[in-house]
Design a protein around this nucleic acid. Structure first.
Lengths: 339, 339
DNA sequence: AACTGGCACTCAATACCCGAGAGTGCCAGA
DNA sequence: TCTGGCACTCTCGGGTATTGAGTGCCAGTT
């Protein structure tokens, strides 16, 4: 591909992203000091359009990039835009005084939304090989017991169940029994061990213990990473002019955790440390055909790993967004590893 | 106040809510079978406008209700609109297979958003007199300890802190020590007891125990009820025409938990079992001057109590919304009490 | 005193036209 | 291969006319 044609494409993308208006040959030669005439640029534009990188909304309007054009831009033309000092400072001071996991995710999503000025999505970190650390049983009344399961990753899950007329000593016995079986094991192993041990119990005890086993299997089968937090929704108001194509579909997608997880998941591959970009129609989720997703994994393979990213109109500032997503993912990842 | 004038106001409110267009005298007499002429209605309208219940956007446009008009409508004119069978069914089957508190709140917010077709807000239930039930300490590594605080209400809070070179026996000792002081007490009492006991400890132990005490005070000072869940945001897309006055401010408010809590809190008084309605300017939060909040408390004074509600444009269907909020609050309240 | 029909008036919304301007495609010539 | 020139297209903005829903007021009727 011609060197100058690439330069033209780059110029069109940057101009269009900045102005939201179709860009014509004349203004292009003026703004960027391309040392050729407008007519030459017109030829290049026509050729770029033939190849599918550009369109124009109507005859005698400037050109706008297609999804394919953005793709080429992102893959080969985008130069890294370093973050501003203020942004770097915001990122590195964002975790001061953080307390629990919820708080970490909340701050991350806020930070990401702030520096990208887009809608941010952060998946809760999920352990690479989560293990059961401890199971605690607490009496909530004469007939009700609260089960608290603590994972090696620090995530805590709770559920209550009925256990008529239990005593404190029975509860303590149950707790020791279940911990000796489950603690230190992976969820699958723990459930296996419990179900085996259940068979060896005295029938009188078995019935009551099986209640606990059922709850445990219930709790451990939900994937704690299958949750996301969303932030920066008000940033959508910047795109009021693209109500139907951007604001509405994004709001709808945000309501469905599953959609978001799939959206991130099909963009970023586990273990890959690069920022993934999905442009317009590359997203499988129908309503988001005119929005882009910029996402990355964060954390490390050995402790906890998850995804984060932003979603916005295809016409977004990819270099800045990519830089911001990378920086935030890096920072949070490092923060998680240090504890 | 004249009987007919009230009827006119009622007719205008219902028509305007349905059509979103200023309603004129002629169409009004046609649609509602008021047995007087349009001129008479015009007189009534002019008088209602003098008294501040109506405005018109410009001369020679129909009338629209003012905040004061809506207020009168809600207080004296609205007839209860019974829920449809489908709605009743949706409400009573919504909790099937529910597991934990998070799930209850999530389902409630979803349900509320669905039946009102507005943005729904549900506060996490908070105990009337919460007590500390149990404190659990779990080693996360040689230098790190996870504190899990379980409240009598079943809410669980976690936080980790550093405790260099601890042993399992030390942890067990600390756990017994803190539980003997805190368990069964209110947060304030528990913290008081711990700080007193701290002074009586051997100086060598005191330093390490004080780390735990600090974490405990940190955890217990956050109010677990100070959290809300939001849903039905896509319903905002119905109000695309009121972008600046409705969509944008609501999106911004939703981002701030504190704003939402204050919004609900100043509408509904604890213990009151009626649906509270805040119309337009009655809300203290500036940007929401042209939206209304319909809220109610749910739960019971003796177990757990919190607020839920919806926010939408002042031009909303108050009778339906009020009925829906009441029904959902009733149902969830009953559900919580039964366990 | 309350209601009605009639009439003049207002004003947003719609449609329409026209000119300006930005942009294109193409072609002949450097 | 690039350039200048030229005819053509189409949007956008402004101005004007028209429409029509709706009001306010008044004189007349019940």
């Amino acid at each position: 591909m011609d060197e100058r044609k690439l330069a033209v494409l780059r110029a069109i993308v940057t101009d269009y992203v900045a102005s939201h208006e179709p860009v014509g040959s004349k203004t292009l030669v003026e703004r960027h000091h391309l040392d050729v005439s407008a007519a030459t640029i017109r030829n290049d534009m026509a050729s770029l359009e033939d190849e599918g990188y550009l369109t124009h909304p109507h005859t005698s309007a400037g050109r706008i990039p297609t999804d394919k054009g953005y793709r080429l831009f992102v893959d080969r033309l985008a130069t890294v835009k370093p973050l501003s000092l203020a942004e770097r400072r915001a990122i590195s001071s964002f975790m001061e005084g953080v307390c629990d996991l919820d708080d970490i995710v909340r701050r991350t999503v806020r930070l990401l939304a702030q520096v990208t000025r887009q809608v941010a999505i952060v998946q809760y970190p999920v352990a690479a090989s989560p293990r059961v650390r401890h199971v605690e049983l607490v009496s909530l009344g004469p007939d009700r017991v609260l089960t608290v399961v603590i994972r090696s990753t620090g995530t805590v899950e709770q559920r209550s169940f009925e256990l008529t007329d239990h005593t404190d000593t029975e509860l303590a016995g149950l707790r020791d029994w279940v911990n000796s079986l489950a603690a230190g094991r992976t969820p699958a192993d723990a459930l296996e061990a419990v179900s085996v041990a259940l068979g060896e119990l005295h029938p009188a005890e078995r019935l009551r213990a099986s209640r606990l086993a059922a709850v445990l299997s219930d709790v451990l089968s939900v994937d704690p990473g299958a949750r996301v937090m969303v932030g920066g929704v008000p940033n959508l108001t910047r795109f009021g002019t693209e109500y139907e194509t951007t604001v509405k579909p994004v709001l709808e997608a945000l309501e469905e955790q599953m959609v978001l997880l799939r959206l991130l998941g099909e963009a970023v591959k586990p273990g890959d440390d690069e920022v993934a970009v999905r442009i317009g129609g590359e997203n499988s989720y129908e309503p988001l055909q005119s929005t882009s997703v910029v996402a990355r994994g964060y954390g490390s393979a050995d402790s906890a790993w998850a995804m984060l990213g932003v979603v916005g109109p295809t016409r977004m500032d990819y270099p800045s967004t990519i830089a911001a997503v990378r920086a935030v993912a890096n920072y949070v990842g490092r923060f998680l590893q240090e504890g």
